[in-house]
Design a protein around this nucleic acid. Structure first.
Lengths: 206, 206
DNA sequence: CATCGATTTGAACAGGAATTCAAAAACGGA
DNA sequence: TCCGTTTTTGAATTCCTGTTCAAATCGATG
């Protein structure tokens, strides 16, 4: 008696979502340039042929996976922000939400994979740049309203400060995923807050 | 008449230096995880067999290439620093020397390739961490002497400020190599200087 | 200039990955 | 339940990469 087990069949769109998620995991495991069809198939619990059926070009799937990962990361930050009203609280929470929870944080790991590739691949460069700009705008809104309310006294224009805040998040994300022995999520948050305090003239105690 | 052209023969150590350099270029072209033996061979003007003769394990060569690239980057920064005495000048020049000259700057491109891989590969993580720490020390020395001379009035301890300065360099290095349309070397330097001014209480005009 | 060891080539080989495709399986609807 | 369509498998094929190794070449040395 031969029993053949076939992977659960799914609708077109459900399967694509599965594959994008599988690709995300595969990229984290093997890197954007090291990932291969079989890795994605394995993560998805399918055969290479099935993956190819949905995405004839692996590179397209990878781009979609990166895109989806970015969007998820950004949406998550916005969602946390939406719950708050106090500019001080907003700023503190947002700084936190830009950092990985630890060295294995999948969202940040995925974004970090893009860093190097963005220098070689224009598509990735554009993706990463657009994420950066949106994050900057996010901070700007917080800083501007805080300044309007008289809670913050900005040491420079809000664009400059916002760009630096996002830059610091990015960089500490790399340090944390690289397992710096002295810099974890808490320490990184404190380092960025140190800058934020100087830039806003507020001690950011909430 | 058959003419066989053989690559110029070189001494063991010369050839190894060549290969490390070729590997550096190959990594920049294809990524740490996308680079393959033939890429390195091509960059070196040799055949795969010849590369394998010197480095039976490609991964070892790649690690050496990354290591060499890091050291070169760091040494270069130290060298520029050694020429100066004024803390203000030192700080300004050092900030500059941590940024790529443009999107194609090979040294920064190479370092950026490491970012993602450091989350997966412990060796790369250690390399990158040690570079970061040394750069932090470099800034610390500048800030501490400036403070001792009364030129700087630090807004936080020198470790904190130094960590943030290196973090900002790193992050803007990524932005520049990803070809951010608004942030080039000059703009990045100005952004970091904005922080440095606030942190040192010095307007850093030289 | 003859020899010897070190270096490089080039071809052969092995393993693995992407791609193709016919057949099988699963699903939805009649 | 049966049928037509969609999805998945698995095997065959092709392509590519790493690896091995004998032969050729080079450079130094006596």
């Amino acid at each position: 008696m031969k029993v053949v087990v076939v992977a659960q069949r799914k609708s077109r769109s459900d399967r694509r979502i599965d594959l994008i998620d599988a690709a995300r995991r595969a990229i984290i495991r093997h890197g954007v340039d090291g990932v291969q069809l079989s890795h994605v198939a394995e993560e998805a619990g399918l055969t290479s042929g099935a993956v190819l059926y949905h995405y004839p070009d692996l590179r397209e799937l990878l781009v979609e996976a990166q895109h989806a990962g970015m969007e998820r990361f950004y949406e998550q930050r916005l969602r946390q922000l939406a719950k708050l009203t106090d500019p001080v609280e907003k700023l503190v929470v947002t700084i936190r939400s830009g950092l990985p929870t630890g060295p294995l944080d999948p969202d940040v790991r995925l974004l970090n994979e893009l860093g190097g590739a963005a220098g070689r691949n224009r598509v990735y460069g554009v993706l990463l740049t657009s994420l950066y700009d949106r994050q900057v705008s996010m901070y700007q809104a917080i800083l501007d309203t805080g300044a309007a309310l008289g809670v913050f006294r900005l040491s420079a224009d809000s664009v400059t400060i916002s760009r630096n805040l996002v830059a610091l998040e990015d960089a500490y994300g790399y340090r944390i995923t690289a397992r710096h022995p002295l810099i974890g999520p808490d320490e990184a948050a404190e380092l960025i807050l140190s800058y934020a305090r100087a830039a806003t003239g507020n001690d950011l105690a909430h």
